[in-house]
Amino acid sequence: MKNTLAISLLMALAFLSGCASTGPKDDEPLVTEAFEINTNSSFAKNVMKLAGSNKFVDSTDGNDITRTVRGGYLGTAASLAQFDLFGALSNSATNSLIENEPLVKGASFFLTVPVRTLELSREEQEVARNDGNARLIKILKNADIEIKELIVNKRLFTEYYASSNMCDLTEKQITTSYRTCKTSITKGIILRTAVLNGKIVAVIRYQIPFANQLIKTADYLEESEYFFMPLKVGRKVAIIAPQPFVLNKGRVHYFKTGAKFEDGQPLSKIELFWYVDESISATGSDLFFSVDMDTLELVPVKE
């Protein structure tokens, strides 16, 4: 299936919720002289700890990732096998179960940027954010995601025209409208400064509307660069990951008890599903898709 519909549909739904989220302000990042991993936690949980949150948990199957929603949603592998997928995707209640953890609001890159000192001035924060943004654009380009002409430069995000492989919905076949393919990237929030592997770094979060093509960035994420996909992003256009995950160095990592870096799985193991609400679908009915991890294309799923 050829990907051509504008990602702006998803931006308006998934991305905007991320802009409204709370978290450390740029002038109030966590400061850690020496960040230490928890050897009893999974690699994925330690990544979220580095990003400033201690609310994430591990579980045997990797489905439950925050204390507030342990066992509290429908998007498990078992329920998907029974096609409870449709309820998990379309039920708006699923969106609100994890609102008290800002990091689960939207797909995010966590990048570490070298800085001179743990205490950063506003000017140094801006330099770090710009360095991180430049690195993110390079990662996207390496994954064949072309960020083209700048459309608008806002206080919280920049919007760009993008290559069509960032647009996962097909014109006319799926939605009732077509828009030029574009995407937005947040300016970045400095979550923490820390000494990591002997170097002083700023840990910066960049949110971006999810697209299947982002999975390819895993092959270009270096040792201290990560991509996080939560349980669900979006509402009328929604994507669900039955097992939320972290991408790093070409592998997918789950919030599974005892899972270390070396337990990372091939990207082909990822499960992803898309939902399009009847109010904007071309057929007038809810539409459901799975993602073919070999081609990253959407495959219709019958309810």
Score class of each variant (00 low, 15 high):
residue 94 T to C: 04
residue 66 T to P: 03
residue 93 A to K: 13
residue 21 S to T: 12
residue 233 V to C: 07
residue 69 V to D: 12
residue 278 E to Q: 15
residue 17 S to F: 13
residue 288 F to D: 02
residue 158 T to V: 14
residue 118 L to Q: 07
residue 163 S to N: 03
residue 157 F to E: 04
residue 193 T to L: 09
residue 96 S to P: 07
residue 70 R to D: 11
residue 83 F to P: 00
residue 219 D to N: 14
residue 255 F to S: 00
residue 292 D to L: 10
residue 207 Q to E: 09
residue 275 Y to C: 00
residue 95 N to W: 00
residue 89 L to T: 02
residue 265 Q to Y: 04
residue 244 P to R: 01
residue 116 R to V: 10
residue 109 F to Y: 03
residue 67 R to A: 15
residue 293 M to L: 08
residue 149 E to S: 13
residue 14 A to E: 09
residue 5 L to Y: 06
residue 265 Q to W: 05
residue 164 S to R: 11
residue 232 K to V: 03
residue 282 A to F: 06
residue 39 T to C: 10
residue 102 P to E: 03
residue 214 L to E: 03
residue 272 L to T: 04
residue 49 K to A: 13
residue 65 I to S: 01
residue 68 T to N: 10
residue 46 N to Y: 03
residue 194 A to I: 09
residue 291 V to M: 04
residue 255 F to L: 03
residue 21 S to E: 12
residue 254 Y to T: 01
residue 207 Q to V: 15
residue 8 S to C: 10
residue 128 A to M: 00
residue 43 F to G: 01
residue 138 K to M: 14
residue 49 K to R: 15
residue 23 G to H: 08
residue 126 E to I: 11
residue 111 L to W: 08
residue 73 Y to S: 12
residue 38 N to K: 10
residue 160 Y to S: 00
residue 188 G to C: 06
residue 180 T to G: 12
residue 238 A to V: 05
residue 32 T to M: 15
residue 53 S to W: 05
residue 108 S to P: 02
residue 187 K to L: 06
residue 43 F to I: 01
residue 45 K to F: 03
residue 249 K to E: 12
residue 140 L to S: 04
residue 290 S to L: 04
residue 81 A to S: 13
residue 88 A to H: 06
residue 291 V to D: 02
residue 130 N to I: 09
residue 31 V to Q: 13
residue 113 V to E: 02
residue 264 G to H: 02
residue 147 I to G: 05
residue 221 L to K: 09
residue 98 I to D: 10
residue 294 D to A: 14
residue 303 E to R: 13
residue 209 P to V: 04
residue 63 N to I: 12
residue 225 E to K: 12
residue 281 S to L: 10
residue 39 T to N: 11
residue 35 F to Y: 11
residue 86 F to D: 09
residue 59 S to E: 05
residue 88 A to Q: 01
residue 14 A to V: 04
residue 23 G to C: 09
residue 163 S to G: 11
residue 54 N to I: 12
residue 195 V to M: 11
residue 159 E to S: 10
residue 162 A to W: 02
residue 68 T to R: 10
residue 151 I to R: 08
residue 262 E to R: 13
residue 101 E to W: 03
residue 30 L to E: 13
residue 99 E to C: 10
residue 226 Y to V: 08
residue 258 G to D: 03
residue 10 L to E: 07
residue 194 A to M: 14
residue 273 F to R: 02
residue 47 V to E: 00
residue 90 S to T: 05
residue 21 S to R: 13
residue 269 K to M: 05
residue 75 G to W: 00
residue 96 S to A: 14
residue 182 K to F: 02
residue 88 A to S: 09
residue 260 K to M: 08
residue 198 G to I: 04
residue 14 A to R: 01
residue 254 Y to R: 01
residue 276 V to H: 04
residue 127 V to H: 05
residue 212 N to Q: 15
residue 188 G to R: 00
residue 44 A to H: 00
residue 56 F to I: 05
residue 260 K to E: 09
residue 170 T to W: 10
residue 235 R to N: 12
residue 242 P to S: 04
residue 144 D to A: 15
residue 73 Y to H: 15
residue 100 N to P: 06
residue 261 F to A: 08
residue 165 N to Q: 08
residue 117 T to H: 08
residue 78 A to I: 10
residue 4 T to Q: 11
residue 14 A to S: 12
residue 35 F to K: 05
residue 263 D to T: 04
residue 192 R to Q: 15
residue 193 T to P: 06
residue 142 N to K: 14
